[in-house]
Measured scan of single mutants.
Amino acid sequence: KPGPLPPNLDDLKVSELRQQLRIRGLPVSGTKTALMDRLRPFQD
């Protein structure tokens, strides 16, 4: 099960964002902004 995301996704490196997306079965392509947008729904 994926762990909790930090409140500020901007603090994560692109590689860390991609890792979080992979865990959730989401696409890992695109800019850092696109990756963050994709992860936002999973934040508490």
Rank of each mutant, 00 (worst) to 15 (best):
R22I: 06
L21N: 09
P7G: 14
Q19W: 02
L9C: 06
L26W: 00
S29D: 14
R22N: 06
T31P: 09
Q19T: 05
Q43V: 12
I23C: 07
L39W: 01
R24G: 01
P7M: 15
P2K: 15
D44L: 04
S15Y: 08
P41C: 10
S29I: 06
V14P: 08
G25K: 13
L35R: 01
P6A: 12
M36L: 05
T33R: 12
S29M: 12
Q20I: 13
R40E: 10
T33I: 14
R18I: 10
R22S: 09
R22L: 06
T33A: 14
Q20V: 04
L9Q: 08
L26V: 02
D10W: 14
Q19V: 04
E16G: 02
G30Y: 00
M36E: 05
R40Q: 12
L21K: 07
P4Y: 15
N8V: 12
A34G: 04
A34D: 14
R38N: 02
L9G: 04
P2R: 14
E16A: 07
G3T: 14
M36V: 10
D37I: 03
D37Q: 10
D10C: 15
K1V: 03
Q20M: 04
D10K: 11
D11T: 14
P41S: 13
L35D: 05
P41D: 07
M36Q: 06
K1I: 13
L21C: 08
T31D: 14
L9I: 08
L12A: 05
D11S: 15
L26P: 02
L39A: 03
R40Y: 11
Q20F: 11
G3H: 13
D37W: 01
R18Y: 02
G3E: 14
Q43T: 14
P27C: 09
P7W: 06
R38E: 05
V28N: 06
P27E: 09
I23F: 06
P7T: 13
D37C: 06
R24M: 14
D37E: 15
S29T: 12
R40C: 04
P7H: 15
I23K: 10
F42W: 11
L12V: 04
L26G: 03
L21P: 04
T31I: 11
A34F: 00
R18F: 05
D11M: 13
L39P: 06
Q43H: 06
V28Y: 10
F42Q: 11
L5G: 08
R18D: 00
N8I: 06
Q19S: 08
A34C: 05
I23S: 13
G3V: 14
M36K: 11
P6T: 09
G3D: 09
G30R: 01
P4S: 14
G25E: 08
L39D: 08
L26A: 05
L9R: 04
P41A: 13
L9Y: 02
R40A: 14
Q43Y: 13
Q43P: 03
R40K: 15
R18W: 01
G30E: 03
G25P: 03
G25H: 15
V14G: 02
S15D: 13
K32P: 03
I23N: 05
L26K: 06
Q19H: 06
K1T: 04
D10N: 11
F42N: 02
V28W: 10
R38F: 00
P4F: 15
N8D: 08
S29V: 11
R22A: 10
D10G: 15
K1C: 08
S29K: 11
A34H: 15
R40H: 04
G30S: 01
D10R: 10
I23E: 13
T31G: 09
L17R: 03
M36Y: 02
R22M: 03
L39C: 01
V14W: 00
L5S: 07
R24Q: 02
P4I: 13
A34E: 13
Q43I: 11
D44A: 11
L35F: 03
N8S: 05
P27L: 02
P7A: 14
D11K: 14
L9M: 04
Q43M: 12
K32G: 01
P2V: 15
E16N: 01
L39E: 04
P4A: 13
R40N: 02
F42Y: 11
L17H: 01
Q19P: 02
N8L: 07
R22C: 09
P41I: 12
L17P: 00
D37Y: 08
V14A: 05
R24S: 01
L12C: 04
D44R: 12
D44T: 01
Q20D: 03
V28P: 09
L26F: 07
Q43N: 09
P41W: 10
L17M: 08
R24W: 02
F42D: 11
N8G: 03
Q19A: 09
Q20K: 07
V14S: 05
R40D: 03
V14K: 10
R24P: 05
P4T: 15
D11Q: 12
K13E: 00
P7N: 15
I23R: 09
L5A: 12
L21E: 05
L5V: 13
P2I: 15
N8Y: 10
L35I: 14
G30H: 05
L9E: 01
G25T: 04
S15V: 09
A34T: 11
L5Y: 09
L26H: 00
Q43R: 09
R38Q: 01
K1R: 00
R22G: 04
P41T: 07
F42H: 14
R18L: 05
P7K: 15
R24D: 04
P4W: 06
L5D: 08
T33M: 06
L26N: 05
N8R: 11
G25D: 08
L17Q: 13
L21W: 00
P6E: 10
V14H: 06
E16S: 05
Q19F: 12
V28Q: 13
R38V: 02
G3S: 11
M36S: 03
L39R: 01
T33K: 13
P6V: 10
T33W: 05
L35Y: 02
R22F: 14
R22P: 01
V28K: 05
Q19M: 09
Q19R: 10
L5W: 00
R24V: 04
F42R: 11
I23P: 03
S15P: 07
V14Y: 07
K32S: 00
D10Q: 10
D11C: 08
S29C: 09
L17D: 01
T31S: 14
Q19C: 05
F42V: 09
T33N: 12
V14T: 09
V28E: 14
G3L: 12
R40M: 08
L26T: 01
T33P: 10
K13F: 08
Q20P: 01
P7S: 12
P41H: 10
L17W: 01
V14D: 02
T33V: 13
L35M: 13
K1F: 05
L9A: 01
Q20C: 06
P6G: 10
L35G: 05
R18P: 02
M36I: 11
E16K: 01
L17A: 03
F42S: 13
D44K: 15
I23Q: 09
L39S: 03
R40I: 09
T31V: 09
K1D: 08
D10M: 13
P41E: 14
L39I: 05
D11R: 10
G3W: 03
V28A: 12
L21T: 04
F42E: 10
L12S: 08
V14E: 09
K1N: 14
L5E: 10
P2D: 15
M36P: 05
L21F: 01
L12W: 07
D44S: 07
E16H: 00
D44N: 09
P6N: 07
P4L: 14
D44Y: 06
G3P: 08
S29N: 08
D11N: 12
T31C: 12
L39Y: 04
R38A: 03
V28D: 15
L9P: 04
G25Q: 07
L35N: 03
D11Y: 10
P41L: 10
G25N: 12
E16L: 01
M36G: 02
V28T: 14
L5I: 13
G25W: 00
P4Q: 14
I23D: 12
L35V: 05
L12E: 06
V14M: 11
D37K: 08
E16V: 05
L17C: 00
L12G: 03
G30T: 00
L26S: 04
P2G: 15
L35A: 06
E16R: 01
T31L: 07
R40P: 07
K32D: 04
L12F: 13
G30F: 01
L12M: 14
T31M: 03
G30V: 01
D37G: 06
L17T: 01
K32Y: 03
D37R: 06
K32E: 08
L17K: 07
K1S: 02
D11G: 11
P4V: 14
L17E: 05
T31E: 12
P2S: 15
P27S: 12
T31K: 09
E16M: 03
I23H: 13
N8P: 04
D11V: 12
D11F: 10
